[in-house]
Amino acid sequence: MSHSILLPRTMEIGRDACQKLPVILASLGVKKPLIITDEMMVKLGYVDNIQTILKAAQINADVFSDTVPEPTESSIEAGVSQVKAQDYDGLIALGGGSPIDSAKAIAILGKFGGVIRDYKFPRQVDEAGLPIIAIPTTAGTGSEVTRFTIITDEANNEKLLCVGMGFMPVAAIIDYSLTLSVPPRTTADTGIDAMTHAIEAYISPKRNAYSDQQALAALRLIGPNIQTAYHDGKDETAREAMMLGSTLAGIAFCNSSVALVHGMSRPIGAFFHVPHGLSNAMLLPTITEFGISSAPDRYADCARALGIADHSETDDQANVSLVKYLKSLNDELHVPTLAQFGVQKADFDALINTMCEQAFASGSPNNNPRIPTLEEMVQLYTLLWNDNTVAESSVS
Rank of each mutant, 00 (worst) to 15 (best):
S321Y: 10
A172V: 00
N386S: 15
P184Q: 13
N157C: 11
V390F: 14
F290W: 08
G269Q: 01
T228D: 03
G96T: 05
L34G: 01
H334P: 01
P275W: 09
Q227E: 15
R185W: 10
R220P: 11
S181L: 08
S364V: 00
D193M: 12
P8N: 04
I308C: 08
Q19C: 05
S143G: 12
S27L: 10
T179K: 02
A128F: 13
S321H: 15
P183C: 11
R304F: 13
S394A: 15
A128I: 04
P99R: 03
T228W: 07
T37V: 03
T138P: 02
T228L: 09
V170H: 09
S256R: 02
D310C: 06
A229M: 08
S27P: 07
D297E: 14
P205K: 10
Q317W: 03
K104M: 04
A318G: 12
T196S: 15
L54A: 13
L161V: 02
P336D: 03
A241H: 13
S294N: 05
L283W: 07
E200F: 08
T149E: 03
S279T: 12
F341Y: 15
I292G: 00
Q214S: 08
C302S: 08
T382G: 07
L322R: 04
V378P: 01
I132K: 01
S293L: 10
L351R: 07
E200R: 01
D38M: 04
E376A: 10
V170S: 08
V378Y: 12
S74A: 15
H311E: 14
L338Q: 09
I92E: 00
R266H: 15
A217C: 01
A194G: 12
T149Q: 05
D193C: 13
Y88M: 01
T373A: 14
G263E: 05
D232T: 12
V378D: 06
Q227K: 14
K159S: 06
S143A: 13
K32Q: 05
L383N: 00
S4F: 04
T37H: 05
Y88E: 00
G113Q: 07
M264S: 07
T286W: 11
A359G: 12
S102N: 09
A61L: 00
L161R: 02
A78E: 09
T179R: 03
P136S: 06
P372E: 06
I13A: 02
R239C: 10
A61F: 07
V390C: 13
F360W: 12
D316S: 13
S177E: 11
E289G: 10
R266C: 07
L91K: 02
A295M: 03
C162D: 01
M355L: 10
A17P: 05
V145I: 08
A93V: 04
A107C: 04
T141H: 06
V261K: 00
K111A: 05
E77A: 14
V170D: 01
D212Y: 11
T337D: 12
N368K: 06
M264H: 09
A134I: 01
W385Q: 01
E332N: 13
V261F: 07
P69M: 13
